[in-house]
Amino acid sequence: MTLLAHDRYCDEIAHQVRLLRAVVTSGADLSATVPTCPDWTLEQLVRHTGGALRWVELMVRTRAQEEIPEEQVPGAEGPEGEGDPAALDAWLADTGEMLVGALREAGPDAKVWGWAGVLNAGFWARRMTHEITIHRADATLAAKLPYDVAPDIAADAIDEWLEIVEWAQRTLPDDPSRELQRSGSIHLHATDNTPELNAEWVIDLTGDAIVWRRGHEKATVALRGPLTAVLLAFYRRLPLDSPELEVLGERELLEFWLERATFG
């Protein structure tokens, strides 16, 4: 699958950091539970996201050839004290600048350790783009704010999620994705699709591992809706019964997928 340009990922990380900072400074209750990550408050979600960005920044900047333990990352835990949106905002701003600067300086081909076997900085530019894009959705849900995302980023996030599920099936013997072998197929259909974007996917579950491709084909079950809504439903951030979504065919197969495609 064709990736987006490295600079596009870097630009989007910077953009998503700005949008996440806007949630932090919106007056939202930082102690509110995140509906889609109920073990976290909004503040804990933001600290987790910023900490992940700082972890990657350190690995990219130092060209790490093995995983750096998270506890060795300076400042990853966030500002001292809790409930201070200004301090959290400033920490996020510094975090975003650090990571984007490190990724731009490295370029996509710099050799860096990666957990999926893609050993370059480009892997991390893409991974962190979608890490913060999805966790910003979590944050906006907690803050009861609107959410949208650029179509090229949303489509690439679905591609990457399918690649992660493939990787988990191959690599993690106890991962629930190993149970996804089942008769049938899933079609994801963005109703605001364009020929240039090609935001449709077919996922075949009939083999020993999933096989997927972009395209419009009849399937056992189809999930239809605007691309952002399809993205959020596929990441289990939006219920299938949401009014902007439509499920056609064997809904149980789609639910079976969502219960088991859980890595990350």
Rank of each mutant, 00 (worst) to 15 (best):
L3H: 15
L4P: 04
I13F: 09
A14H: 08
H15Y: 14
Q16S: 13
L20S: 06
R21M: 11
R21Y: 08
A22Y: 03
V24T: 02
S26M: 01
G27P: 00
D29Y: 00
V34I: 00
L42F: 03
G51P: 04
G51Y: 07
R54E: 09
V56Q: 10
M59T: 12
V60W: 02
T62E: 13
R63W: 08
E66I: 09
E66N: 12
G78L: 00
E82V: 12
G83T: 01
A87V: 07
L88A: 02
L88S: 00
A90W: 05
W91T: 09
L92I: 11
L92V: 05
T95Y: 07
G96A: 10
G96L: 09
M98D: 15
V100Q: 11
A116K: 14
G117I: 06
V118M: 14
A121R: 02
F123S: 02
W124Q: 06
R127V: 02
R127N: 08
I132H: 06
I134W: 03
Y147N: 07
A154G: 06
E163P: 03
E166A: 13
W167F: 11
A168C: 07
Q169Y: 05
R170Y: 09
L172P: 08
D175A: 15
D175I: 06
P176D: 05
R178G: 06
R182E: 11
R182V: 14
S183C: 12
G184V: 09
I186S: 05
H187V: 13
H187N: 09
H187P: 04
N193H: 12
E196V: 05
L197P: 00
A199G: 09
A199C: 07
E200I: 14
E200P: 11
D208Y: 11
W212F: 12
G215F: 10
H216F: 13
K218L: 13
A219P: 07
T220V: 08
L223G: 02
R224Q: 15
R224H: 14
G225A: 01
P226E: 12
P226F: 08
T228M: 06
A229K: 12
L231Y: 07
L231M: 12
L232M: 06
R237E: 04
R237M: 05
R237P: 03
P243K: 02
L245Y: 00
L245A: 01
E250F: 02
R251V: 04
E255H: 00
L258A: 05
R260H: 05
A261F: 02
